[in-house]
């Protein structure tokens, strides 16, 4: 029996004011002690998916799903108290921008200890110092009582990780944890996350626009485009034998490699999303008529799932050269 930490079925989200939905009918599951990477460019819906899992979407988000289960809790139906206790004890979140994810006028330690009852603060404080040392922060004792603007981005992220671990969560959600950091710091942080995940057998959702980041740390990968999952499978499979044209172009867009593309990869998604048929069809090199009219479903091919009408045929042709 596989123990699932997160089960999401048919999640759709749209933000008020945008006629293109942020997520359309997305389903995925996260197994125990597994690290699932979610990759996509900005606008693909990856962050939305992760936040939705925690019920953290803003007021102007309209959400509908068959079910969202985290652990044994049904997030859709849960009452406020249940949701709060879920966040306090089961899940830890690491956010993207360290300079914006902290309240500038409160001390770090106050912010991290805020959800817990006063009586636990004493021993939680010590625990936090311990974790901070584990994640590689020296002089944790001093650093804990300072304000966010006194610390560097890398350090703030480490503290955020330490704070996320404070409640001994079983699930860790990392939303672009390294995007706002320097490359060298990025590598360190990733190593830390990877290490922690293995050491504590954490289930982890790792979201990034950077395929390399996701590849390094995840067991399985979801590739998202314009609010839908276009490919999913074990990391090795997706990286070494990508099947969806988008995945292929993502991999091919590593700097230094010249590739033939219909449109440059860095235009925003919303401008080019096809409204009927496959959302990638307007940018796809291999699109044919059916791609523009009928939306492809995710289907199982060679150990992974792809949403592309031409997956098998392109696979056998091996059109894309490395």
């Amino acid at each position: 029996m596989v123990d699932y930490k997160v089960i999401v079925e048919s999640l759709s989200v749209s933000y008020r004011g945008n006629h293109i939905p942020a997520l359309s009918n997305v389903s995925f599951a996260l197994e125990d002690a597994e690290c699932l990477g979610i990759v996509g460019e900005s606008g693909s819906g990856k962050s939305t998916a992760a936040l939705a899992v925690m019920g953290l979407l803003g007021r102007n988000a309209e959400l509908s799903a068959n079910s969202i289960k985290v652990g044994s809790c049904d997030v859709l139906k849960a009452r406020k108290k249940a949701l709060l206790s879920l966040r306090r004890s089961f899940v830890g979140v690491v956010f993207q921008d360290p300079s914006a994810s902290w309240n500038p006028s409160r001390k770090i330690v106050d912010q991290l200890l805020q959800p817990f009852p006063r009586k636990d603060h004493q021993h939680l404080r010590e625990k936090l110092i311990g974790y901070m040392e584990q994640v590689g922060i020296e002089k944790a004792q001093e650093r804990i009582g300072v304000y966010p603007h006194n610390l560097s981005g890398g350090m703030l992220q480490r503290i955020m990780i330490a704070g996320a671990l404070l409640s001994e969560p079983q699930l860790l959600i990392a939303d672009e944890p390294t995007s706002a950091l320097d490359v060298t710091v990025q590598a360190d942080l990733l190593g830390l996350l990877s290490h922690l995940q293995r050491q504590r057998s954490l289930s982890m959702l790792m979201i990034s626009h950077n395929l390399a980041v996701v590849a390094k740390i995840s067991n399985r990968v979801l590739v998202m485009y314009a609010g839908t999952i276009v490919e999913a499978g074990p990391t090795k499979n997706v990286l070494l034998r990508p099947m969806h044209p988008y995945t292929k172009s993502l991999l091919a867009s590593v700097p230094g490699v010249e590739k033939e593309r219909k449109k440059p990869l860095d235009t925003t998604v919303s401008a080019l999303v096809a409204l009927s048929g496959c959302p990638y069809s307007s940018r796809c090199v291999s699109a044919i008529d059916i791609c523009h009219t009928r939306k492809p479903e995710l289907r199982e091919i060679q150990g992974a799932q792809v949403a592309c009408h031409r997956a098998e045929e392109l696979e056998s042709n091996s059109v894309i050269s490395r």
């Binding site: 953290l56 004890s89 899940v91 912010q111 959800p115």
Partner: peptide
């Protein structure tokens, strides 16, 4: 209330 740190606090399980 729109700022990211508010959501970060929510994610930690602080009451609204």
């Amino acid at each position: 209330l729109q700022k990211p740190y508010i959501n970060a606090a929510r994610a930690r399980g602080v009451s609204e």
